[in-house]
Design a protein around this nucleic acid. Structure first.
Length: 93
DNA sequence: AGCCTGACAGATA
DNA sequence: GTATCTGCCAGGC
């Protein structure tokens, strides 16, 4: 099981209406957030990248046009242009 | 081998 | 709340 698959699997674990930060996923997998970002870039459309946001709650990379839209459609709580991490952050088991 | 860059985050001012 | 700096891990040149 490569870290790639681990990340993809972990991201797919996030339910609708929830999100996770890079550091959250990284902590869950036992790696630094930087690694997650790198891997996310390698992954394809199989992952719900829009559910992966910065620790601040801002959508990654400036997908600031589509991501918020998808998240809002899934029921993700928003605080202005920022995701309400406090309520939308998914807890990995 | 060395340097630069990058889907990051936390600390500090 | 915004702006800057530093630390971390990999990959490309």
């Amino acid at each position: 099981m490569d870290l790639i698959d681990e990340v993809r699997s972990t991201v797919n674990t996030i339910p609708d209406g929830k999100v996770a930060s890079y550091s959250d996923i990284g902590a869950h997998l036992g790696v630094g957030p930087r690694r997650i970002g790198r891997i996310m870039g390698l992954l394809d459309d199989d992952v719900a990248w829009w559910r992966v946001v910065y620790s601040d709650g801002r959508p990654a990379v400036c997908h600031c046009g589509t991501a918020p839209q998808i998240l809002a459609a899934e029921g993700t709580p928003f605080t202005g242009e920022r995701v309400a991490m406090t309520h939308a952050r998914h807890r990995f088991d």
